[in-house]
C-alpha cells in the first residue's frame, strides 16, 4: 500500500467527466481531494492524494493519461533553493502539513516535502523567497 500526491490538469473537454470516481471504482484506489479549482475557461486543476497497491496506482495513472488528464507527482512541486535559504526559521509553525522542523543540534531548518500539500503558504512566509512552486 502506498500513498502519493498528484497535481491533475483537466482540459476543458474532460473537466465535467467523473474521472476521479472511476479511479476509485475501477482501479480500487482511495482518494483524497486536497484542493480543486475550475477556471472560467472550464480548465480544472486538482490536488489529489491516491492510496493503493503499487500496480493499481500505475494502472490508475495510465487510465488518467488515456482520459486526457495529466498527472504529475507532487513531492517535486514545491522545492527549496538551498543556496537562498539562511535557516532563519520564519517558515516554522506556518506550514499546515508541518514540513519544516528545526534540527536541535545544528540549528538548521529541515524541509521534508513528502507531506507537502502545495498550499503555497511557505512561499509568502519565506523572507528569502527560497521556496518555489512549479505547477
Amino acid at each position: 500500500m502506498i500513498s502519493r500526491r498528484f497535481i491533475l490538469h483537466f482540459p476543458a473537454a474532460v473537466a465535467d467527466r467523473p474521472v476521479v470516481g472511476r479511479l476509485a471504482r475501477e482501479h480500487g484506489l482511495d482518494f483524497n481531494i486536497l484542493r480543486a479549482t475550475i477556471d472560467p475557461g472550464n480548465y480544472g486543476i486538482m490536488l489529489l492524494e491516491l492510496t493503493g497497491e503499487r500496480e493499481a496506482l500505475a494502472r490508475g495513472l495510465a487510465f488518467l493519461a488515456d482520459a486526457g488528464v495529466s498527472a504529475s507527482q507532487l513531492d517535486r512541486q514545491i522545492q527549496r533553493d538551498q543556496d537562498r535559504c539562511v535557516d532563519c526559521g520564519a517558515c516554522l509553525g506556518f506550514c499546515p502539513a508541518r514540513c519544516f522542523a528545526a534540527e536541535a543540534a545544528s540549528g538548521r531548518i529541515a524541509f521534508d516535502n513528502g507531506r507537502c500539500t502545495a498550499c503555497g503558504q511557505c512561499l509568502t512566509a519565506c523572507p528569502r523567497r527560497a521556496m518555489e512552486m512549479a505547477l
Binding site: 539562511v86 535557516d87 526559521g89 516554522l92 506556518f94
Partner: peptide, 13 residues
C-alpha cells in the same frame, strides 16, 4: 501557539 524564530541559529553558530 507555535513559535518561529526569524533569526538564524545556524548562521549565528
Amino acid at each position: 501557539v507555535p513559535t518561529a524564530p526569524l533569526s538564524s541559529l545556524a548562521r549565528a553558530r
